[in-house]
Design a protein around this nucleic acid. Structure first.
Length: 477
DNA sequence: ATGTTC
């Protein structure tokens, strides 16, 4: 338990830090006691800093998987009102803009995969570029880049990557409105021109998984999931482009803070008023970054379909959903009984719209949004559904994954990549990666227990558990 | 996360 921060237990799964000093609103953390005990005090410090930013509404929130991040905690949620001096923060979105997870049904069961599992792993590893600085077969000139940044997954489908039907099951229908490609620098564009349709590195991956357990039969049926079904999880983001946008705007926001009359408790919290030239420029660039990530996952989906068509011609890959967990989005939420338009930052936090939300496609509106929670390599992942009361609890946000339990450096001292691969192979999990060091850094033991995180999110009321899935093939950055 | 330090 934190020595420094006075955490009041509000309920079994929620904890509160009352506003003191420069805090404008309380900090609220959703977690069980064990997760709270394991949280670094840095999370609480960063949450209190966020709670002091201009125009913040209701509370600064931390999800059960929260850990220390750049400025904002990863697993942090904060909403701002533009009319009350609210700000937008590059550090509140994160460097990998619109990093997220997409889930595909395959129409196959595990029995059909087993005989060709190795062949499938090799073909996916061959066809989907992965690793630091990986490039693909798509090369965009400046005009093509502008079209991609404006159109997102819709652009990708128009280029022949996937089906129009896919767009219904992507946040923003696959195309983030309000993107301003002109706000994306030449350098960011250059970094991305050969990187479309690539997975990247770090914790990014493509997994072939089996639905191992159904928690909610009604919702699972609505999501088209049955036990032993094979699905695919794709976890990646906006590659070099998002990182470059984040780096540049962070610098501009630090430089402009004093002009905007913003006093920063931590320069990593750099932000700009939503109603300022810089705030609007960032929002335009960040939304273009969102489109880049949506297009990237759409192209990877197309490559995945091609591989399955070769190896398992019977497969029919359909999109369950695509969620982003590093964004700032304008949404309407009920605050103190009043509907307000808010700029909701989610950094390492998944949007989790509940049943009835008008932004959900018709097929899911009565059910709630699929919430895709990727575990670490070699461990289980989870599919949840957004809850009705999520709007008042966390502006409809939930956890995004297991969260690291130790640094990458520490992990490489404890594990060797080759032995991690061998141990997972013994358990029937095939890993393919260009980097054994990357594999060591991502060893399952270097992460928290994703099930504890998901259970805490459910018990706090943020989302509802639907299914647990286990990995069989993992293509790893 | 990231052309893993412009």
């Amino acid at each position: 338990m934190s020595e420094t921060y006075p955490l009041q237990r509000e309920s079994e799964f929620s904890w509160r830090i009352e506003p003191t000093g420069k805090m404008r609103v309380p900090g609220i953390i959703y977690a069980d006691e064990e997760l709270i005990r394991a949280m670094d005090d840095k999370v609480f410090e960063q949450l209190c800093n966020v709670a002091g930013l201009p125009g913040i509404v209701q509370a600064a929130y931390a999800m059960p998987d929260a850990h220390w991040g750049y400025g904002f905690p990863i697993g942090g949620v904060a909403a701002f009102d533009a009319d009350q001096g609210g700000v937008v923060s590059a550090g509140g979105v994160g460097f990998d803009i619109s990093c997220g997870v997409r889930a595909l049904r395959t129409g196959l069961t595990i029995d059909e995969i087993e005989p060709v599992k190795k062949q499938l792993a090799d073909a996916l590893f061959r066809q989907i570029p992965v690793g630091v600085g990986s490039t693909g077969r798509i090369h965009l000139n400046d005009k093509g880049m502008t079209a991609m940044l404006r159109g997102g997954a819709r652009w990708a489908v128009e280029q022949g990557f996937g089906e129009m039907e896919d767009l219904q099951h992507i946040e923003e229908k696959g195309c983030m409105a309000g993107a301003v490609p002109d706000e994306v620098s030449a350098r960011a564009r250059k970094r991305q021109q050969d990187e479309m349709g690539t997975l990247g590195s770090g914790n990014h991956y493509l997994e072939v998984q089996r639905v191992a357990q159904i928690y909610d039969q009604r919702i699972a049926t609505a999501f088209g999931l049955r036990e032993n079904d094979v699905i695919v999880f794709i976890h990646c983001g906006s590659r070099g482009l998002g990182h470059q946008i984040g780096t540049e705007f962070l610098k501009y926001m630090v430089l402009a803070a004093s002009q905007h009359g913003i006093e920063l408790p931590d320069r990593e919290l750099a932000c700009a008023p939503i109603n300022s030239e810089l705030g609007q420029a960032y929002l335009g660039a960040m939304r273009a970054g969102i489109n880049c990530a949506l297009a990237n996952r759409q192209i990877i989906t197309h490559l995945t379909r091609q591989v399955f068509a070769d190896v398992l011609p019977k497969a029919d890959l359909t999109l369950l959903f695509d969620v982003s967990h590093n964004t700032c989005k304008v949404e309407t939420h009920l605050v103190d009984g009043r509907k307000r338009k808010l700029y909701v930052h989610r950094k390492g936090a998944t949007r989790a719209f509940g049943p009835g939300n008008p932004d959900l496609p018709e097929t899911l509106r009565a059910i709630g949004q699929p919430v895709l929670i990727g575990g670490s390599m070699g461990t289980e992942s989870h599919i949840l559904a957004g809850s009705e009361k999520g709007t008042e609890l966390s502006f409809n946000s939930a956890c995004h994954g297991a969260g690291r339990a130790m640094s990458r450096h520490q992990a490489t001292k404890l594990w060797k990549g080759r032995s991690v691969v061998d141990e997972l192979a013994d358990r029937g999990i095939i890993i393919r990666s260009p980097s054994m060091r990357g594999v060591a850094e991502e060893a399952p033991g270097a992460y928290k227990d994703v099930r504890a995180v998901v259970d805490a999110a459910e018990k706090a009321g943020l989302a509802h558990k639907v299914a647990r899935v286990e990995p069989h093939v993992c293509i790893k950055g």
